[in-house]
Design a binder for these strands. Structure first.
Length: 158
DNA sequence: GCCAACGTTGGC
DNA sequence: GCCAACGTTGGC
């Protein structure tokens, strides 16, 4: 099993929104960055995800999710009405992909970015690095478990 | 609102 | 293929 961190802007789509969805599941549309896409294509069903809220005060990790469906073409790219429309990713030859993400549980206590930055065990976490904009990043199992611990949350990673 | 980081675009 | 200009992200 692998571990990931995915960003969302809570004003647009929050972890609570995810938990409120039917089956707690949502297609993760609109990723338009090659490295982030490649990470999504490497995801396997059942992988665990930290959902991070950016562009809010304070930025924080909000909850745990899992990969409900592995990468498949992101149809929003071929919908001219979509904000994510990209004529360079037609249905016949899709460039952009999405996964379905299923909410698992909220962290008992959200873990603020400042807390992540202050933790020596999380130095390698992409999101604590200044200027990082990647919306999908891999994390190690140790980092994943550490964040849960900071959030006073128990969840088995086995 | 400012600005650093950095991905993308397009001229050459 | 280089690189300057530009746009976006996102913390502060």
């Amino acid at each position: 099993m692998k571990f990931w961190l995915m960003k969302s802007e809570p004003d647009v789509f929050s972890f609570d929104d995810l938990m409120a969805r039917p089956a707690k599941t949502e297609p993760w549309d609109g990723v338009r960055n090659y490295l982030a896409r490649n990470h999504m294509m490497a995801m396997k069903q059942g992988d665990l995800i930290l959902i991070y809220h950016s562009n809010c005060a304070p930025p924080h990790v909000a909850g745990i999710a899992t990969v409900a469906k592995e990468a498949y073409p992101d149809s929003s790219a071929w919908d001219p009405a979509s904000d994510y429309f990209d004529p360079k990713s037609p249905a016949e030859k899709p460039r952009w992909f999405r996964v379905d993400v299923k909410g698992v549980k909220a962290l008992k206590e959200p873990v603020a970015l400042a807390t992540l930055k202050a933790d020596a065990a999380l130095e390698g976490l992409e999101v604590v690095r200044k200027g990082t904009r990647l919306s999908v990043t891999p994390v190690t199992e140790e980092e994943f478990v550490r964040v849960l611990s900071l959030g006073n949350t128990k969840y088995s990673t086995k």
